[in-house]
């Protein structure tokens, strides 16, 4: 399966990655070659194989419902570019 340049640009936009125009062709070729590898793998018969959600042969450990984190706002906001009234400030978003 191949991928074209416009799809690469779309996926890049969804991932908020900036790919310069002269890098688009090379990226397209690289991703296409990965997809070709996937095509080869598709040939394997997986009829009786359970889909794998995680390669580790283990199950999720659960945590007791007990508060373990106290208020660290000051520390956590010290690296934020803009803060006011305890809120993180971000470029305005309007729906």
């Amino acid at each position: 399966m191949a991928i074209d340049a416009s799809e690469v640009q779309k996926v890049a936009h969804l991932a908020r990655l900036s790919i310069s125009d002269d890098a688009v062709d090379a990226t397209t070729t690289t991703i296409s070659s990965i997809l070709e590898l996937v095509d080869q793998m598709q040939a394997v018969d997986t009829q009786n194989v359970e889909p794998l959600a995680n390669p580790l042969d283990a199950t999720q450990r659960l945590r007791a419902d007990v508060v373990s984190e106290d208020n660290q706002r000051e520390k956590l906001q010290s690296c934020a570019p803009a803060v006011e009234d305890g809120l993180f400030l971000v470029p305005r978003v309007i729906e």
């Binding site: 803009a82 006011e84 009234d85 809120l87 400030l89 971000v90 305005r92 978003v93 309007i94």
Partner: peptide, 15 residues
Amino acid sequence: KSLHEDFHGMSGIDL
């Protein structure tokens, strides 16, 4: 939660 009141043209975020 996003708070859209005007913070100098920015939005406030409460997580």
